[in-house]
């Protein structure tokens, strides 16, 4: 029983990790909590859904299309709403409020375009179930974990080993200095938003394929939980986000099982508040002086 909860919790957690990484990437570079990230995740799931239902490209290509479109959408959001604020040197809180506004726009646009009711999504990696000891393992879960791990490694590789990743880290350290060294800061930020959006789109498609359902409100709670995960691990730190995601997924799974289904959402928020109170920089975070 416990092992089953651990396994189910890990599946959930790795997807939270994938969403949480998006928060961390953007926060790392901009010191901004991208509140629209949850809505972006719902956006990605809907694009994949509409492509797979209305064309015969199949689920794989649907997700690829969704990744590209979602990435472009987040870049566009940055371009028209956030970049002007940076140019004006607005207060940090203005950018946060802007992303809250964007989140509302995206979520409600999804409701108007796709209707607000829940819709069916095809099952992903459907090759049956098998039993390992007491644990029932679904092929879907194995597929989700594999894809998520590969993507997380890929993201880490991009940030740590590529030229653009180096630029991202430079902007993170000091945007002004990076710009003086010839780095196009706006391009780096656009790229970061693209990565965040793309990972959210993958997470959205995977989760929808797991539960076989999408709805426009799915991003709000999922986004908040992933944000809790990012904060727990230390926002801005990739491996912290992964760790946080797994903890939140496990905690939620155990809460639903041992306390009752009504409490599952509360757990993530309690983790969030507790971390913010006792260790606002997260488990892996270094002390940063934030002046907003």
């Amino acid at each position: 029983m416990i092992l089953q909860q651990v396994f189910d919790g890990l599946t959930l957690g790795i997807v939270y990790a994938l969403i949480a990484v998006g928060y961390s990437l953007v926060f790392g570079v901009l010191r901004l909590v991208n509140f629209a990230h949850g809505a972006t995740y719902a956006f990605g799931a809907h694009i994949a859904m509409v492509v797979v239902v209305s064309t015969n490209f199949g689920l794989f290509w649907a997700i690829i299309i969704s990744v590209i479109m979602t990435g472009l959408m987040t870049m566009f959001m940055d371009r028209i709403a956030l970049r002007p604020l940076r140019a004006k040197k607005s207060k940090g809180i203005s950018a946060l409020i802007t992303t809250i506004g964007c989140s509302y726009i995206i979520q409600n646009a999804l409701m108007i375009v796709f209707g607000s009711r829940s819709k069916w999504f095809p099952k992903i990696f459907d090759y049956g179930n098998f039993q390992i000891g007491n644990v029932l393992v679904k092929s879907t879960q194995v597929g989700i974990i594999t894809v998520s791990v590969v993507l997380l490694l890929l993201l880490t590789f991009i940030v740590q080993k590529t030229k653009i990743g180096l630029a991202m880290r430079a902007v993170q350290q000091n945007a002004k200095a990076a710009s003086l060294m010839g780095i196009d800061v706006n391009r780096v930020i656009s790229f970061t938003f693209f990565l965040g959006g793309a990972s959210a789109a993958v997470a959205g498609s995977l989760i929808s394929g797991y539960y076989q359902i999408v709805n426009p409100q799915m991003g709000f709670i999922a986004g908040l939980k992933a944000f809790s995960a990012a904060v727990l691990g230390g926002i801005g730190i990739l491996h912290g986000a992964v760790f946080g995601g797994l903890v939140v997924g496990l905690a939620e799974s155990f809460a639903a099982f041992y306390i009752g289904g009504g409490y599952r959402d509360a757990v993530a928020f309690i983790i969030l508040i507790v971390v913010l109170i006792f260790r606002p920089n997260g488990l892996f975070g270094k002390k940063v002086i934030e002046k907003v």
């Binding site: 029983m1 089953q4 909860q5 189910d8 599946t11 959930l12 829940s118 989760i207 797991y210 539960y211 359902i213 709805n215 409100q217 799915m218 709670i221 799974s253 639903a256 099982f257 009752g260 289904g261 009504g262 599952r264 959402d265």
Partner: peptide, 20 residues
């Protein structure tokens, strides 16, 4: 007897509990 939140899409823990 088990309860779930409205709007929830993940039933895995609830299903494990129900199956028990």
């Amino acid at each position: 007897y088990e309860e779930i939140l409205d709007g929830l899409t993940d039933f895995s823990s609830t299903i494990t509990k129900l199956r028990s």
